[in-house]
């Protein structure tokens, strides 16, 4: 399965009235996870988060595609 690049956030059991709400729910949770951390701690958290999510995705071809996009223009 190729890398999904369309909006894809949802939470089971939730009904959304506005299209932006699930993405905003995720973004708020992401920023909140970093609250009160130093820059170094935040970098460590981000690394752990990527490893967890990468394992969840599993398909290395999808991960390679994501890594290539992330690398562009950096």
């Amino acid at each position: 399965m190729p890398l999904k690049l369309e909006a894809n956030f949802f939470e089971p059991g939730q009904r959304y009235w506005r299209a932006y709400t699930p993405g905003d729910d995720f973004y708020e949770a992401l920023i909140e996870t970093h609250r009160g951390l130093s820059d170094e701690q935040s970098a460590l958290l981000n690394a752990k988060l990527i490893l967890l999510l990468a394992n969840h995705i599993g398909d290395i071809s999808v991960l390679r595609e994501a890594m290539a996009i992330a690398r562009q223009d950096v």
């Binding site: 690049l5 909006a7 894809n8 956030f9 506005r18 905003d24 973004y27 996009i69």
Partner: peptide
């Protein structure tokens, strides 16, 4: 990428 556009938040206007 469309997924990132959906996250850009320059104001969610009154509804």
């Amino acid at each position: 990428h469309a997924f990132a556009r959906a996250l850009v938040n320059s104001g969610r206007l009154s509804v």
